[in-house]
């Protein structure tokens, strides 16, 4: 195994774990409302931008991160209350919320471009620099990649544990199966839906910070590509499946990095989207998902 290949694999797994995190953020709201926030990418961008901005104002890094996360959590409430809920009440199919959340994302992106400028901003090194590495079996392993990998995987595991082991997690599961039944059973469905959007936004914020750390810079358009990779990961693994999101995320990360390394970095996107379209056309339920049986 040559070094180049190995470094690509590590990079692929590392960014793949972030894609998995994004995919799980999308899953969360998909469970509770069968909707996705198309503005998720903008939340990622905004969180990373805010961290850069707050840090540049002299705030300690940890505080800057908390500040960024608080803002995106609040925006998660906004998304649920003002884009998803009215669209679901007005019904008319999925068009409503696809359009409204997309619009919300565009607003955030536009505002960020207005106030922070559309130039890429350097993201500060939070834990390690790109030069830090450890050597394992004669291979240089970038510490940043390892930390990002460890963080995403542990977050995913924690979330999975939460859903499986806690009452609140079970309630989320119940709502995903039948929201009306959950409501008549007396579950605080509204609150849980709201919670899912806040959690989803927080995951987006974390994913944004991690991606910015790996990439080194952040700009207003930065989240959009990332969230598309997250979509691909979610669809590949099967929308709604946590394990699927992890597998899908790693697969997308690996494929895109290998294609980027050996063919062309420009082909990264095209391959990911081609994968998405092929997957949707051939097996919409994903590799690990089960087909939805709907009552006609």
């Amino acid at each position: 195994m040559d070094d180049f290949f190995f470094s690509l694999v590590l990079a692929g797994i590392s960014v793949g774990s972030v894609y998995a995190l994004i995919a799980i953020g999308l899953n969360l709201t998909f469970w509770t409302t069968r909707t996705l926030n198309f503005g998720q990418g903008s939340l990622m961008m905004l969180c990373a931008m805010l961290v850069v901005f707050l840090a540049s104002q002299g705030l300690a890094m940890a505080l800057a991160v908390i500040g960024g996360l608080l803002v995106v959590a609040a925006l998660g409430v906004f998304v649920e209350r003002f884009t998803i809920r009215p669209a679901l009440v007005a019904s008319g199919g999925s068009m409503g919320w696809v359009v409204s959340t997309l619009g919300f994302g565009i607003v955030l992106q536009g505002v960020a471009a207005k106030y922070f400028g559309s130039q890429a901003m350097a993201f500060p090194d939070v834990l390690f620099t790109t030069q830090d590495y450890v050597t394992v079996l004669g291979q240089h392993l970038s510490l940043q990649y390892l930390v990002v990998l460890a963080l995403s995987v542990s977050l995913i595991l924690l979330l999975e544990l939460f859903v499986r082991k806690t009452v609140w997690g079970q309630a989320v599961f119940a709502i995903s199966l039948d929201p009306e039944l959950a409501l008549v059973q007396g579950m605080p469905v509204r609150l849980i839906i709201l919670g899912s959007f806040v959690a989803s936004s927080l995951l987006a914020g974390v994913a944004g910070i991690l991606s910015a750390q790996i990439g080194g810079t952040v700009d207003p358009a930065f989240g959009f590509d990332l969230v598309l990779f997250g979509f691909v990961a979610a669809v590949l693994g099967g929308m709604g499946s946590s394990f699927g999101a992890l597998v899908g995320g790693l697969a997308v990360g690996l494929i895109s990095k290998l294609v980027g390394g050996y063919i062309s970095t420009a082909a990264e996107h095209a391959i990911a989207f081609a994968l998405l379209m092929a997957m949707l056309a051939l097996r919409p339920q994903g590799l690990l998902g089960r087909p939805e049986v709907s009552k006609a």
């Binding site: 999925s94 696809v98 420009a266 082909a267 996107h269 095209a270 081609a274 998405l276 379209m277 949707l280």
Partner: peptide
């Protein structure tokens, strides 16, 4: 491919189509 999916999947697929063309 698009005829086989709907809702959010269709939104993603058409988004993907636009992006592939652009690339």
């Amino acid at each position: 491919p698009a005829g086989r999916v709907r809702d959010v999947y269709l939104a993603m697929m058409t988004l993907g189509f636009g992006m592939i063309f652009y690339e």
